[in-house]
Simulated assay, not measured.
Amino acid sequence: MQHIIEGFLNFQKEIFPHQKELFRSLASSQNPKALFISCSDSRLVPELVTQQEPGQLFVIRNAGNIVPSFGPEPGGVSATIEYAVVALGVSDIVICGHSNCGAMKAIASCQCLDPMPAVAHWLRYSDAAKAVVEKKSYSSEDEKVNAMVQENVIAQLNNIKTHPSVAVGLRNSTLRLHGWVYDIESGVIRALEKNSQQFVSLSENPEVYFE
């Protein structure tokens, strides 16, 4: 814990003074352009990977970058999506998975999650991705996990379209959806291309988006 406190003290002393005007402008309002939904994994830091300053990303992080379909009992994810789209008026939503995802590995390997019933329940929102992956054969466990990561991004993109605020934004062409997979070792991001349903290099296809 001490190194976290020391990090804050360094921020307060060395970083904050150089960005004082930025934080002053953010003190009373925010105007992010994108909602970024990613895994809680400590190795993926959305603001670092996308090089965004405070105030530029509205972020949801949870195990497996999961978006439950809209239902009668909205939870934190549903409420945050609705707030981002309706109140903040974000124009883009990114759902970003990553390599070596523990949640997707647990699903792909049918890991026993009895000691973690809340996690087991949460990962049921990836059942569509699991069903697709289970219908195919893979040469290795790593290949299966990678497929699960990609299919999960696709499944969550489909889930988010059931949210009324998102459906309206897509219908009115005021909102775009993006599906990304970040590779931790190489730093490469692959983005889902709508027509081909394939993940392509984002650096080589910077204009690509899902919908």
Rank of each mutant, 00 (worst) to 15 (best):
V153N: 09
R176V: 04
S139Y: 10
H178V: 03
L170E: 00
I160H: 08
M148S: 06
N158P: 06
K135F: 06
S137R: 11
K144Q: 15
G169Y: 07
V181W: 07
V168I: 14
P164Q: 05
T162D: 04
V153C: 07
A129G: 10
S140H: 11
S140L: 05
E134V: 01
A155K: 04
Q150L: 14
E143Y: 07
V133D: 13
W122G: 09
E141W: 08
E143Q: 12
T174D: 06
G179K: 00
H178A: 05
E151N: 06
H163T: 00
R176N: 12
I184D: 12
N172C: 11
K135N: 11
Y138H: 02
A167Y: 00
A128E: 15
V181S: 05
T174P: 06
V166L: 03
S126E: 13
L175W: 11
Y138Q: 04
L170M: 03
Q156M: 02
S173K: 15
N152E: 13
E141N: 07
R176P: 06
N152Y: 13
A155T: 03
Y125T: 01
L123F: 07
Y125K: 00
Y138G: 01
A131I: 09
N172W: 08
N158M: 07
A128I: 01
V168S: 14
Y182L: 01
N172V: 04
L157G: 11
Y125A: 06
E141V: 10
R176K: 15
W122M: 02
K135H: 11
Y138M: 04
I154G: 08
A129W: 13
A128S: 14
I184Y: 07
V133F: 13
V132I: 15
V133I: 08
Y182T: 00
D183E: 14
V153S: 08
M148L: 03
I160M: 03
R176I: 05
E185D: 15
